[in-house]
Deep mutational scan, measured.
Amino acid sequence: DETGKFLVLALYDYQEKSPREVTMKKGDILTLLNSTNKDWWKVEVNGRQGFVPAAYVKFL
């Protein structure tokens, strides 16, 4: 149950560059965990948590 969690859509592919980031593919649906930083949002994708560039995702 994803109640209270926001979902975001990956607009572009992103390859993680550090262990704190996660890789996503364009079209992936991600669970948004934290968006307090304007540049990097914490998400969960494929069972992994990490950061992606905020400009690469949008709210569903």
Rank of each mutant, 00 (worst) to 15 (best):
L7N: 07
Y12H: 13
A55H: 13
V57S: 00
L33C: 06
L33E: 02
E44S: 09
V43P: 00
Y14W: 11
E44H: 05
K25L: 08
R20L: 15
V45T: 13
L30N: 01
V8Q: 01
Y12C: 12
W40P: 00
K26Y: 05
I29K: 06
Y56S: 11
V8F: 07
V57K: 00
F59W: 09
E2C: 13
D28K: 02
P19R: 09
A54I: 03
P53E: 02
S35C: 13
T23K: 04
L60R: 04
L33N: 02
S18Y: 06
E2L: 11
R20K: 13
D1C: 14
V57P: 00
Y14Q: 01
L7S: 08
W40Y: 07
P53G: 02
M24K: 00
L9F: 10
L60V: 13
S35H: 10
N34W: 07
T3Q: 12
G50N: 00
E21Q: 10
R48K: 13
D13E: 06
D13L: 02
D28H: 04
Q49K: 10
A55D: 11
E21M: 05
Y12I: 10
T36F: 10
Q49V: 15
V45R: 12
E16M: 12
K5C: 12
Q15M: 13
L9H: 05
V57W: 01
G47N: 07
E16P: 14
P19W: 08
G27Y: 04
L7R: 10
S18L: 08
Y12P: 00
G50H: 01
T36D: 15
D1L: 12
N37G: 11
R48T: 07
L9S: 06
V43T: 01
G47Q: 06
K26F: 05
L60F: 11
N34H: 07
Y12G: 06
K17D: 06
G50V: 03
L30V: 08
K5S: 11
I29C: 06
A54D: 00
S35W: 15
D13T: 05
G27K: 02
D13W: 03
D1K: 11
E21W: 03
Q15C: 10
V43G: 00
V45Q: 10
L11R: 07
V43N: 00
G50S: 02
Y56Q: 06
S18E: 09
E2D: 14
A55I: 10
K26A: 14
Q49I: 15
V22C: 07
A10F: 03
G4R: 12
Y56W: 06
Y14S: 01
Y56V: 06
T3S: 14
K38E: 11
D39Y: 15
N34V: 08
T23F: 04
F59S: 10
K5R: 13
K26N: 04
K25A: 09
L60Y: 11
F51A: 02
G50P: 00
W41D: 00
G47P: 01
S35T: 11
K25D: 04
Y56R: 05
W41Q: 01
D1A: 14
E16V: 05
M24E: 00
K38H: 11
L7I: 10
Y56M: 12
I29R: 06
K25F: 09
F51M: 09
E44T: 07
K38D: 11
P19V: 09
L32F: 05
N46T: 05
V8Y: 09
R48P: 01
T23R: 05
K58F: 09
K58E: 14
K25S: 10
R48W: 03
G47L: 04
L33V: 12
D28V: 04
S18A: 09
L7K: 11
R20F: 15
G50Y: 02
L30K: 00
W40T: 02
K25N: 09
D13M: 03
Q15R: 09
L33R: 03
T23Q: 04
N46C: 08
V45P: 00
R48M: 08
V43D: 00
F51W: 14
L33S: 02
N34S: 13
P53Y: 02
K5I: 13
E44I: 08
Y56G: 08
K38T: 09
L32K: 01
N46L: 07
L7H: 10
A55K: 14
T3E: 13
D39N: 12
R20I: 14
P19I: 09
F51K: 02
T31V: 15
L11T: 05
V57D: 00
F6P: 12
L60K: 05
V45C: 10
L32A: 04
L32H: 02
Y56D: 05
F59M: 14
F51D: 04
D39V: 13
Q15D: 14
T31C: 10
N46K: 10
K25M: 09
N37K: 05
K58H: 10
D1T: 14
G47V: 02
T31P: 14
I29D: 01
K17N: 12
Y14N: 00
V22W: 03
L11H: 04
T36V: 11
V22E: 00
Q49R: 11
D28Q: 12
E2I: 15
Y56N: 06
K17F: 05
Y14C: 02
Q15A: 13
V22L: 14
Y56K: 08
V22I: 15
P19E: 12
K17E: 08
R20E: 13
A10P: 01
S18C: 08
M24V: 11
K5G: 12
L32E: 00
T36L: 10
N34F: 06
F6N: 12
F51G: 01
T23Y: 03
L33W: 04
N37C: 08
A54S: 12
L11G: 04
A54P: 05
D13R: 01
T23V: 03
Y56A: 12
G4W: 11
N46Q: 11
D1Q: 15
W41N: 01
R20N: 14
I29E: 04
K38Q: 11
P53R: 03
L32Y: 03
Q49D: 06
E44W: 06
L32P: 00
L32V: 13
E21Y: 05
L9D: 01
Y14P: 01
G27N: 07
K38P: 15
G4F: 12
V52Y: 01
V22M: 09
S35V: 09
T31K: 13
T23G: 08
V22Q: 03
G27P: 00
S35A: 15
Y12Q: 13
L11E: 06
V52R: 00
A55S: 14
L9M: 13
D1V: 14
G50F: 04
L60M: 11
E16G: 15
F6W: 14
K5N: 12
T36M: 11
Y12W: 11
D28L: 04
L33A: 02
K42L: 15
F51T: 03
F6R: 14
V22D: 00
L9W: 06
K25G: 05
Y14D: 01
T36Y: 10
T3R: 11
K58Y: 09
E21S: 06
N34Y: 06
N46G: 12
M24G: 00
G27V: 01
L7Q: 12
Y14L: 01
Y12F: 14
L11A: 07
A10S: 05
G4H: 15
N34T: 07
R20C: 14
D28I: 03
Y12R: 13
K26E: 08
F59E: 11
F6I: 15
V8M: 09
V43C: 04
R48G: 04
L30R: 00
R20P: 05
L60N: 06
D39K: 12
F6V: 15
D13A: 05
L9N: 03
D28M: 11
S35N: 15
V22P: 00
M24H: 01
D39C: 12
V57T: 04
L9R: 08
N37Y: 08
L60A: 07
Q49H: 08
V57Y: 01
W41Y: 12
K5L: 12
E21C: 06
V52W: 01
K58N: 08
I29P: 02
M24L: 09
G47S: 06
E2N: 13
L60S: 06
L33K: 05
F59Q: 11
K38R: 11
L32Q: 00
D13P: 06
V43W: 00
A54L: 02
F59L: 15
F59N: 08
F51C: 10
Y12M: 12
F51R: 03
K5V: 11
A10E: 01
M24I: 15
S18T: 12
V43H: 00
S18D: 13
Y56T: 08
Y12N: 09
K38S: 12
D39M: 11
K5T: 12
L30S: 02
F59A: 10
T31F: 13
G27M: 03
G4P: 15
K17P: 04
K26Q: 11
